[in-house]
C-alpha cells in the first residue's frame, strides 16, 4: 500500500511529514532508553526480514496481491509500537530511495500509515487480547494492523480527492482484510520462531521473569 508520488497534494504530504517526524522523535527517544547490545541486532534482523517479506507479494482473489507490513511483529517483539515506527521508517526509506517503491513526497504518509498507525493498532490489539490467548492475540494484531492502515490510506486519498470515500474504503478495506490473514499468520510464525530459538529476545519473557530468561 505504498502511496506513489502524485496521489497526495504537496501541502498534504507536508502535514504527514511533520506528523511522522514528531513520531520519529518519540521513537528515537524510546530507542535511546530501551535498546541494548542484543536488541540492536534483533531490530536490524527484523528490518532485513521485513524488507525481504515485503517483496514477497502473496496472491489474493480479484487479480490482486499483497504483502505483510511487519509493524505488528516488531511492536509485539519489542513490547513497544515505537520500535515498529523505527523499523518501518528504515524499510520504507530504503524502498523509496533505492527502489522507487512509494513516492519520495509520500514517504511521510507511508511511514505514518505502515509504521505509526499499523504499529499502534497491532500493539493495541495485542495488549487488549493478550490475556485471552497469546497466539490468537498475535494473529489478530497482525490482521488489524494492515486492515486499519489500509483504511487510513483510503481516508488520506479521499481527503486528497484521489479516491472517492466510499469506494476507496470498500476496496482498500476488502483487499487488506484478506491480505491481513497472511499478515497475521506470518506474524505468528515469526514470533513462534523467535520463541523457539531465542525466547529471551521477546519482550514479554523479559518482563515476566523480572530478569532475562536464558542469560
Amino acid at each position: 500500500m505504498h502511496i506513489p508520488d502524485g496521489f497526495l497534494p504537496l501541502w498534504q504530504t507536508g502535514i504527514y511529514y511533520i506528523i511522522t517526524i514528531i513520531a520519529l522523535y518519540f521513537a528515537l527517544n524510546w530507542a535511546k532508553e530501551n535498546l541494548d547490545e542484543k536488541r540492536v541486532p534483533l531490530m536490524a534482523v527484523l528490518a532485513a526480514f521485513i524488507f525481504a517479506m515485503q517483496a514477497m507479494n502473496i496472491p489474493i482473489p480479484w487479480g490482486t496481491s499483497g504483502h505483510m507490513l511487519g509493524a505488528a511483529l516488531v511492536a509485539i517483539v519489542f513490547g513497544s509500537p515505537w520500535a515498529a515506527v523505527l523499523v518501518l521508517a528504515v524499510v520504507l526509506t530504503v524502498q523509496g530511495f533505492f527502489f522507487g517503491d512509494g513516492g519520495i513526497t509520500a514517504l511521510g504518509a507511508n511511514i505514518l500509515d505502515m509504521g505509526v498507525i499499523a504499529g499502534f493498532t497491532g500493539f493495541g490489539v495485542f495488549k487488549a487480547l493478550q490475556k485471552l490467548n497469546l497466539w490468537v492475540a498475535i494473529f489478530l494484531a497482525g490482521w488489524a494492523s494492515i486492515f486499519v492502515a489500509s483504511l487510513a490510506v483510503a481516508i488520506e486519498l479521499a481527503l486528497a480527492g484521489t479516491f472517492p470515500y466510499d469506494l476507496g474504503l470498500i476496496f482498500m478495506g476488502l483487499y487488506h482484510a484478506v491480505i491481513g490473514i497472511a499478515e497475521g499468520a506470518i506474524t505468528v510464525v515469526a514470533i513462534l520462531a523467535i520463541q523457539k530459538v531465542r525466547p529471551d529476545l521477546l519482550h514479554w519473557n523479559k518482563t515476566k521473569s523480572g530478569s532475562e530468561v536464558g542469560k
Binding site: 500500500m1 505504498h2 502511496i3 502524485g6 496521489f7 517483496a55 514477497m56 507479494n57 502473496i58 496472491p59 489474493i60 480479484w62 487479480g63 490482486t64 496481491s65 499483497g66 504483502h67 489500509s150 490510506v153 483510503a154 480527492g161 484521489t162 479516491f163 472517492p164 469506494l167 476507496g168 476496496f171 482498500m172 483487499y175 487488506h176 491480505i179
Partner: peptide
C-alpha cells in the same frame, strides 16, 4: 514466488482513481 498482480492500493487505483 511473488505474485506479479497489482497490490491492494494499485488494484484499487486501477478501478477508482480520480486523478
Amino acid at each position: 514466488l511473488a505474485s506479479s498482480d497489482p497490490d491492494g492500493l494499485e488494484s484499487a487505483a486501477e478501478k477508482i482513481l480520480l486523478v
